[in-house]
Every structure is written in structure tokens, then in C-alpha cells.
Nucleic acid binder design. Structure first.
Lengths: 130, 130
DNA sequence: ATATACCTTGGAGTTAACTCTAAGTCAATA
DNA sequence: TATTGACTTAGAGTTAACTCCAAGGTATAT
């Protein structure tokens, strides 16, 4: 699979794909004799994982570290476990922060729905508090 | 309240506080005759809201827009409602992405816990799939 | 009154994560 | 065979969100 096809499949640019490979976020991709990238299923699996991690907001640094450990083989199981556990903690924390803001948004949106109806915003410490 | 005290209260730097004000993420803060910022309760409410939004990962752009609409007064209720509703949608989407990655992490972590015990990673398309 | 620790502004520097450019190679089509 | 379009690399440019710096003003303790 060419870089363009892969980019189209996942909705990312060829530049981004080359960038991810260059910085070690995915293992090096095999080339044809003329030096052109030929993505295998295995490469696609890595890209999928990486995109999932990026979508969740995990830092590129962590992903690079994981790929590094993976390349080092079986003796890095524990290090990989620790890395993944840390990232899981970070995501759980992030979810909590989103929930706090969602609650606040729900409250504000409810008030504005009434305000749009009535033309008056129910008083609430100048719209800032809570 | 001085800029330093506010920074300490919320765990952000004075530089960041000045930056937030400069780009319009919070309304201008009143000054003493000598030109020094004197944060009021109202200012603190704005800072709290802004930090909550930033923690949740909402873009500074949206926050600036909200402050702008707020300054324009009562005729922007609907615009503010729309903005907040959009941001709520974005957060719900982000939460979904985090949940997808959390599921994946739970699966991988379970496999690595066994791997650390047994010294062998149960086969799974070279650790990339799923 | 002078040292110290704080404050001010405008503007430059940094970091993460891309995104683009230049200069050149390769493959398929008119 | 000439052109078109996709590919290659190395490196420069961009954007968001800070973060730092220089040059100077302010407030309080000795």
C-alpha cells in the first residue's frame, strides 16, 4: 500500500505519515527497490494504534517510548506495562476534567436556554461563578 | 489580590495570567493608581472558569470568543448558547475517543500483566492489532 | 536612602505536533 | 520520449499555548 493510499484510508496526510516514521512513532516501513514506502498490514496496525492514541490526546513522546521498548524485545514487558498503566491513569484523569467541565457546561447551557426564551439571564454572579 | 497570589492560588504563573488577559481570555483586570493589577472576586471567577475550560482541553480561541460575546451584552445570549453547545459536543466527542483508547489500554495491560508473570506475551498480531 | 522583592510592558524564545518547500527520482500515459 | 503525477529526503515554516527577557517602576524593611 502506498503512502497516499494509507493517508486516504486514515484521513491523515502523507507528510504526517512520514513525520510519524521519522520520529520513531511507528517502526520503519519497508521500501520497494526504488525506495518507495510499501505499507504492510503490520504497518497499518501500528498506524491504527498510533492514531487511536493521538485521538485520545496521549503525547507523541509516550508513543515513541512504547515503540522503542517494543523494538528492544521481550525483556521490556514490565517497562511497557508501566508505560501503558501510566497512560491509562492520565486518560482517566483527563476524563475527570472533561466531566467537571461538562457539568459546568450543562448548567450554563440550561441558563442560556432560558435566557434566549425570556431575554433575561437569571442572575449568577455575573455569569462567571459555578 | 496581586498577580502572584492569584498565580499561587491556582497553580499558574504570573506570566500565564498576564498572557490570558492580553489575548482577551479574561476581561481586563482593574489596576491600582500605580498600575498594578488588583484581582477582584469577579476576576477570580473568570480565571476559575478559564482554567476549567483549559483543563478540559477546550481551545483558547473558543474561550476568547465567549468573553467577547459576554462583553457585548444581552443581545448575544443565543450566540453564547450556540458556542457553549458546540463546545459541549466537542467534549462529548473527546470523551468517546478516550473511552476507545481506554478499552484498548485495558486489553493491552491485561496481556502485559500475564506477560510479566509468564515471560511470554500471548500472541496478538505482533502486539499491534486490536 | 538603599536594598530587595515585587510589579509593569513589549517583544522575543520555546515546545509539540505538524505542514510545507526545494530539489530531485521514478512510473505510467499520450 | 516527453510530460504528468506521485514518490523521495532534508530542512524550513507554522500554530497554539505558553514562557522568558530586558528595561524600568513600586513598595517595604532596615
Amino acid at each position: 500500500m502506498t503512502i497516499k493510499e494509507v493517508g486516504e484510508k486514515y484521513g491523515i496526510s502523507s507528510d504526517t505519515l512520514r513525520y510519524y516514521e521519522r520520529i520513531g512513532m511507528i517502526p520503519p516501513v519497508e521500501r520497494t527497490e526504488s525506495g518507495i514506502r510499501n505499507y504492510t498490514e503490520k504497518d497499518l496496525s501500528w498506524i491504527e494504534l498510533v492514531l487511536c492514541m493521538r485521538n485520545a490526546g496521549l503525547p507523541i513522546e509516550a508513543i515513541i517510548e512504547y515503540v522503542k521498548l517494543f523494538k528492544m524485545g521481550d525483556k521490556t514487558f514490565e517497562a511497557r506495562l508501566n508505560l501503558l498503566t501510566e497512560q491509562r491513569e492520565a486518560l482517566i484523569e483527563q476524563k475527570k476534567k472533561i466531566d467537571i467541565m461538562l457539568e459546568r457546561l450543562n448548567y450554563k447551557i440550561a441558563r442560556y436556554e432560558i435566557a434566549v426564551e425570556t431575554g433575561k439571564l437569571t442572575w449568577d454572579a455575573e455569569d462567571c461563578k459555578k
